[in-house]
Nucleic acid binder design. Structure first.
Lengths: 250, 250
DNA sequence: CGGGCGGTTGAAGTGCATCAACTGATGTGG
DNA sequence: CCACATCAGTTGATGCACTTCAACCGCCCG
């Protein structure tokens, strides 16, 4: 059993057996903590891509600007997430990332990834898994935005976010911290803030939930799941046979 | 310079210096060709995840079913693409994948990925790059579906697909093979086939293009790019400093 | 030659956007 | 600690891009 619970692995419900070298590699990633203020950028568009960021605490988001003034929020980053993976292979960023709340992040340069891939198969697999997880979340949202109603998108997002939070720290669905403005929610879910407001009002009137500034309360868990048509398989990372193999060879 | 041009690397505009071991690993992936018929599934929903597939020739797509009867096409897979990456870490597939045309694919079991990650850093980086590329395409489509008009989505898709094809085999934008039904296009772009038909008619009337059953002709390249607001950076994979490092250590 | 799929076209409906005015919170400097 | 500016959210009126339903055509293929 691993003694260290790395941030990279914290949000994968799955642990690899780590040798001393693996653990040293992990510690190297986390030796440069940066205290971030709310709203502070992690990176900006067109800046060179040279670092990744482990979110230690706080919420962040990444987004893309649209020539006609709109923005598309691409991911909501929670503690334990790795930020910057998507653009790992780009020369310059095409998105921007900012903190939503204050928090602590561990930036580390790309070449550490090479260290990992050269020296630790288990950590490399964890990296792949983090990648896959992030893409799964994105795919789910694509389906959501493309095909489901505003209410369903909102319901789904609430459950997804609660599930992700709950994996890192126990979180009660019936009432938890959700520091997103309706504008941000809209930019994430492909809606205007006006329509987010209307939808939330409707859902409140129907007794599903109440949303205050930075707090949400879910009153009817079952109906929320039903409206969201939520299936949590996309958040799992079973690694099928790969995990067994990694442990065998460790 | 590498002597072998692997399918994995074919669609990355970027080559790593490969040792003999790397090349052997690559050949191992391609030793099991499967001739596929049009419409034949690569995998189906709920089946166990145990293989990846290199598309050697032909077109394929993956999609997810929606409880209310709709489908969301998640990716269009072209020669040189690796299919199955997204669900690498799942126990069972939540999507389905099928051939669009007939073609040849190289299926290979997951444990070969471990072989790669244990034995070849350059190939591991290529795998990461393939992952990143796929996610970039997905992100771009999310932005598209979420914020742009039907015409813009169609225009963008045509240019994107041409760009991807052109990277594998020279393809003339002014007329090329595009074996997608309007229904499939709609399921990919979040539109009904009816609206795809209307939009294509409009664009034809405006002298932008003509689309026949399995063939497309672009008549006004500049205006198509303009309508699509196309920026090809998301299809690049520069690998910034990583590439240099990989070559240094190879 | 018949059946089915891919595509076209029309009429009517709708979920969300847009524009706009307003309220209440938040935060800031005097 | 209040005055004021700003931002987050609410609500209403109106518009429109896309959907839905439906009929129809033409092509391909058995």
């Amino acid at each position: 059993m691993p003694r260290i619970q790395s941030c990279i692995l914290a949000n994968l419900n799955h642990y690899f057996r780590l040798g001393d070298d693996d653990q040293r590699l992990l510690r190297d990633l986390e030796k440069d903590p940066a205290q971030m203020r709310s709203g502070q950028p992690l990176w900006t568009a067109d800046s060179p891509v040279d670092q990744l960021y482990i979110i230690q605490s706080g919420w962040a988001y990444s987004f893309r600007d649209n020539p006609d003034g709109g923005r598309q929020v691409v991911d909501i980053l929670l503690p334990g997430d790795v930020a910057g993976l998507r653009e790992l292979t780009f020369a310059t960023h095409i998105s921007e990332a900012r903190m939503i709340t204050e928090g602590v992040v561990y930036p580390f340069p790309h070449h550490r990834i090479l260290d990992i891939m050269e020296n630790s198969t288990p950590l490399s697999m964890a990296l792949l898994a983090a990648f896959a997880r992030q893409e799964a979340i994105l795919t789910e949202r694509l389906l959501l935005i493309s095909q489901r109603s505003a209410r369903a998108r909102i319901a789904h997002f609430i459950i997804e976010t609660h599930t992700r939070l709950n994996r890192v720290q126990p979180t009660d669905l019936s009432g938890f911290y959700l520091p997103l403005s309706q504008k941000l929610l809209g930019e994430l879910l492909g809606l205007t803030s006006v329509h987010v407001s209307r939808s939330l009002s409707d859902m409140t009137r129907d007794g599903l939930l109440t949303k205050a500034r930075h707090h949400i309360e879910v009153h009817d868990r079952d109906r929320l799941f039903e409206e969201a048509d939520f299936d949590d398989r996309y958040l799992s990372s079973a690694m099928s046979g790969l995990h067994a193999r990694v442990e065998d060879t460790a």
